[in-house]
């Protein structure tokens, strides 16, 4: 493993560092709130892991570029309908014409555009929602524990339980 490959994978190192940090906080903590924070860091590292794997080198956001969208609109409406169209479509036409002026590059750009993979990001939206629900529930439980025991220190709580 050369230095280059180690440095090239830097985002994975960030993921591993965050993961271990979060995991350590969860295991080593004695304060309930801190363990929730640790859990959050741990989950965040997984979000980064997924987003990293969705990135394609040189890829752009998986949204159809305006030039191509306009060209399609152009093809759909035909040149006659274009004159009567709304200003929005009119504007789009100009973009399309501008693109065409570059010596018919449009056809080649359509095939050459590289997109990033959107699916991991979408999955992470779900995972973030799950993470929020978990955090909210955990904090609600901590509030109840605090009301009943008067402390959020786990050792103190266990002591109180033993004393019963």
């Amino acid at each position: 493993m050369t230095l280059e490959s180690v440095a090239g994978l830097y985002n994975y190192w960030v993921v591993i560092f965050l993961m271990m940090t979060g995991f350590y906080i969860v295991l080593a903590r004695k304060n309930l709130i801190k363990s929730v924070i640790g859990l959050n860091i741990f989950q965040t590292s997984v979000f980064l892991l997924y987003i990293t794997m969705g990135k394609v080198e040189g890829g752009t956001a998986p949204i159809v570029p305006p030039a191509i969208a306009a060209a399609q609109a152009h093809a759909a409406h035909g040149s006659d309908a274009g004159h009567a169209a709304t200003p929005h479509v009119e504007g789009a036409h100009e973009v399309a014409h501008a693109a065409l002026q570059h010596g018919g590059e449009l056809a080649s750009t359509t095939t050459e555009i590289i997109y990033s993979n959107p699916l991991p990001s979408v999955l992470m939206l779900t995972a973030i929602v799950v993470g929020i629900a978990t955090t909210a529930l955990a904090l609600a439980l901590v509030v109840r524990i605090r009301e009943d025991y008067g402390t959020v220190d786990e050792e103190r709580i266990l002591e109180l339980d033993r004393g019963e």
Partner: peptide
């Protein structure tokens, strides 16, 4: 009053387990 505490301990371990599963799936 031990019920919320038991639920909390389950939540922490359960979430770690679920996150492990998520990493595996990824």
């Amino acid at each position: 009053r031990r019920a919320p505490l038991a639920a909390f301990q389950y939540l922490i371990l359960g979430s770690i387990g679920a996150t492990f599963i998520l990493i595996g799936i990824g």
